[in-house]
Every structure is written in structure tokens, then in C-alpha cells.
Write a protein that binds this DNA or RNA. Structure first.
Lengths: 195, 195
DNA sequence: AGACTTATCTACTGAACGGTAGAAAACTTT
DNA sequence: AAAGTTTTCTACCGTTCAGTAGATAAGTCT
């Protein structure tokens, strides 16, 4: 194997670099020039390795959920719904206010896009919807386990937590300091579950 | 007065048409061609009447807060903090899920923008921050009037309501139906104030 | 060594972007 | 009617966009 000239860059680290550009500028805001300069490769190399811009973005997204976005899955595995929400909320605060990870990728690219980014918009919407569904399933289990009140609506609770997370992402994009978002998480936790 | 050739279009209705294009596509997503076609005028006419794209967007924004976004100010004038929040939340649900007003302009344009839109991003951030501050001032008054608990933090509450509103806007952009957002507002109201 | 395969490079598309020049048209004023 | 002012139009500007052609370089295979 390994026929032909060997690749001179590591695709995974290049993908990480691309991820950070998309993170900072959004899908449409990140030009191919921005990306190639950050990744340290030329455009033909990028196209040969990753396809087109859309493919690159999807691959970067996958890397996001397995890397910096991993706290979400970790949170779902906590023993109680309360601990799950707490973990996800507070880790999300750290993530969206981390100067190395400026903003939430899922929200960042979700809005304000032109016609060309329609499919990207759908992809991000689908991923957000998937996260909300994961929450709903977790809450359904919690209700069955007596961990949440029997008359709670798992879907409503999932939507509520999602809204808080998305609101935090918007506020972080507006420059809200970590301390303020922590207090927002505090408040959401104090009245949890908001039946 | 009224020297020279008279303008053949009405600037206010043209601004409304522009507003809807920005609403649907965001600041960067709306091209000058999109705008002129929707407004029914040519590019030089647009530039002569409104300046450049950025000026046009700001004028459309002003028209937004005085028109479709007017429910916010109306809400602030309600006699109690609870009624204010209730009014703003439910009217916001109607606004962001109105098929004629697809999304929240303030959130729509706030993210995912390239370098060119940096000043627009700042403008939108400033306006969102202003709204949050209006809420904070209203809550401060409510605390003084005994309308909210004395140990409540007006700033935290304002941030909380803002987060819910922004979360709703993101979910609406993702196609969430009106019914679901109403239930989200219900939930936020049920645990109000979340001290 | 030589054939084969793949990566890398410079240089370039065509299209879309925001914005404008310059002439003609439509009005008020004198 | 002529001068002055402003709008409107077609046609264009330079720039940037995502994406590519074609030559060359660097490896592995027989």
C-alpha cells in the first residue's frame, strides 16, 4: 500500500485547523484562502484530500462532536437527569467562552447564510435537532426511573435545555463573559426541573 | 421645494421590502441584486436613496424595532414584571414563527458572518445588549416596587429572559413549530421568577 | 532502471460580489 | 423656453469567491 507520492501534511491536524477557522468565521465567512492559509496547504491539496468546501465542513463537524463537543455525550451518561443537565450546561459555558474555541459551531453556522449554504443550514439544523432528541430520550428514561416527576414532558424539557444552550451560544457570540453565563446556568439549575 | 426629478418609488415601502429580504437571508446572504429585485429599483437608485448596503441595513433595522419588533417596548410598559415577560415571550413566539417574518432579525444577522460584516455584527450585538439592559432596568424597578423578590438579581433575570428569547429564535430558524415554542414559553413562565 | 500512482505547485477559470461613471430623462425654477 | 437639480438607466469597475488544468515532484511497484 501507500502508493504514489506521500501526503506531506496530517489530515487530522489539518482538519482541526480548518475546524477552528469555521468556528471563528462560520461556514460562509471562512473563505478557501482563509482555510488553506490556516491549514498550511494549497487549494489543490485541500480539494484532493477533502473534496469541496461543504465536504470539508462536514468532516470538521464530525471532528467537533467527537472532540470539543464531547461533553454533550458525556453529560447524557450521568446517572441522573439533573446531573446530566448540570454537566452539559456548565461544560457548555466553558466551551463557548473558551477563547480557543470562539463560539458554538452548531449555532454559529446555523443562521444568516446565503442560498449557497442552504444544505449546510439543513445539516446544522438536523444536528441540533438530533441533540435535542438525545436529551428527550434521556429525560424519558429519567421519568421512567422516577428521577424526574411523572407528569413532566420530556420533549418540553429537552426543548427548554436546548433553548438555554442556544441562548448561551448567542450571548457568548456577543462577548458575554464566562462569569455571566455561569450565573445563567446557575439560575437554570436552581429551578430545575421547571415543571 | 422638491427640486429635480421626483423619486418614482416610496422609500418607506422600499425599506420594508429590503427588511424582509434581510430577514429571510441575513445581512451577508442578501445580495444587492436580491435587494434591488425585491425592491423593484435599480442599484444606482438604491445607492442614491440609502447610501451603501450597511446604511440600508441599519435603516431597515430601525424600521424593524418600530414595526414588527415593537412588542418588546410594549411589553416593558406592562404594570408588572411578570406581565412584561409574559407579553414579550408570547409575542416573540408569534413574531419568530410568523411565515411573513421568517426569524428574528437580531439573531439572524448576528452570527456566521465574514470579515466584511464585522461592524454589522457589532451593531446587532449592541442592540441585543440594549434590549437586555432595558429588561434589567425594568426588573430593577420591579424589585423596588416589591413586584419581584428583594433578593432577585435584575441582571441575571434579564440575561435569563434574553437567553430564552434567543434560544427561541434559533429554534424557529430550525423550523420549530409555533406550538412547541408556546410550550417553551409556558415552561419559562411556570417557573418565573427562577430565583 | 523504468512504469505507475498520487501529491504538490503555479496559474488560471467563470461567476458573483459591492459599488460607480456617465448619459439621458423628468421635474422646478427663473 | 432655458437653466438647474435630482433620479433613473445601462454598462461597467476591480475584487473576491469556489473550484480546476496541467505540469512537476516524490514516492512504490515490477
Amino acid at each position: 500500500m501507500a502508493l504514489g507520492r506521500p501526503r506531506e501534511f496530517d489530515t487530522d491536524t489539518a482538519l482541526d485547523l480548518a475546524l477552528h477557522v469555521f468556528w471563528r468565521k462560520g461556514y460562509e465567512g471562512a473563505s478557501m484562502t482563509d482555510l488553506t492559509e490556516a491549514m498550511g496547504i494549497t487549494k489543490p491539496s485541500l480539494y484532493a484530500a477533502f473534496g469541496n468546501k461543504e465536504d470539508l465542513f462536514r468532516k470538521a463537524l464530525d471532528r467537533y462532536v467527537d472532540g470539543p463537543g464531547g461533553y454533550f455525550r458525556t453529560g447524557l451518561e450521568k446517572p441522573t437527569a439533573r446531573e446530566a443537565v448540570q454537566h452539559i450546561l456548565y461544560e457548555s459555558v466553558e466551551a463557548v467562552t473558551d477563547p480557543k474555541n470562539p463560539g458554538c459551531l452548531a449555532v454559529q453556522g446555523a443562521l444568516c447564510c446565503g442560498d449557497a449554504a442552504e444544505t449546510i443550514k439543513q445539516e446544522l439544523t438536523a444536528r441540533r435537532s438530533k441533540s435535542e432528541d438525545d436529551l428527550r430520550i434521556r429525560f424519558t428514561r429519567a421519568i421512567a426511573e422516577g428521577d424526574l416527576p411523572a407528569d413532566a414532558d420530556a420533549g418540553d424539557l429537552a426543548r427548554y435545555v436546548s433553548a438555554i444552550l442556544q441562548g448561551m451560544a448567542v450571548q457568548a457570540a456577543g462577548g458575554a463573559p464566562r462569569e455571566q453565563l455561569r450565573k445563567l446556568a446557575d439560575m437554570a439549575m436552581r429551578s430545575w426541573p421547571p415543571i
